[in-house]
């Protein structure tokens, strides 16, 4: 155990995800040795992120204003909504530059064992957005794992009654892999989603 402030810093750092006691100690001593101006910037960045950043009132993405850049941008296609689990997924899709519509961040996926049901996600907010007659397509881009698939199944069932076309991102073989190493589920999905070349 170290004295007061050092131990307090180690304890706080140790509560961060992926940081164990040894890493916490190493980071704490790095902070002690570092230039005070650099550490002031780190402190300001942490303070600012907690004070300024909130969630977009429309899509749930992180934003410094009441609505995020994407929801405010008039050049974005207002007829398509892409439903994702986390804000990180918005960035991943934006990097592709393939989608020009708007997003809806659910805040996770349905995981009953983890205590997350449909009520804990922003599904009600999505339904509220769909009362806007402009929307013509919903693209479900939840993770291609079991929780993501189940969430997509739940959303598709719920949105069927509304009558707006709902699509799901394709699943299949990763680029750069060997066919023989693909598991049955992935290969099966690739067959289901095959496309005609000629």
């Amino acid at each position: 155990m170290y004295e007061g402030a050092v131990q307090e810093l180690i304890d706080e750092l140790g509560r961060l995800p992926g940081i164990g006691p040894k890493s916490a100690q190493r980071i704490a001593f790095h902070i002690l040795d570092a230039d005070p101006a650099d550490m002031k910037r780190l402190v300001d960045a942490v303070t600012n992120v907690k004070e300024r950043v909130k969630f977009c009132s429309i899509c749930g993405n992180v934003s410094e204003q009441d609505t995020c850049n994407i929801c405010r941008d008039p050049r974005r296609d207002p007829t398509a909504i892409c439903v994702v689990e986390e804000s990180k997924d918005v960035i991943a899709i934006e990097r592709t530059r393939s989608f020009r519509g708007r997003y809806h961040v659910l805040g996770g996926a349905i995981n009953p064992i983890g205590g997350v049901g449909p009520e804990q996600l922003r599904i009600k907010e999505l339904l509220n957005r769909l009362s806007d007659k402009q929307i013509e397509e919903i693209i479900i881009a939840t993770d291609p794992n079991l929780e993501g698939e189940a969430t997509a199944t739940y959303l598709a069932r719920m949105l069927k009654a509304i009558g707006i076309p709902v699509s799901r991102l394709a699943s299949g073989l990763p680029v750069g892999g060997d066919l023989e190493y693909a598991d049955e589920v992935t290969l099966g999905r690739a067959f289901e989603g095959r496309r005609i070349l000629t």
Partner: peptide
Amino acid sequence: TSSKFGAVLEP
């Protein structure tokens, strides 16, 4: 996405 395990280790 390139993991060799694919969907094998899903619940």
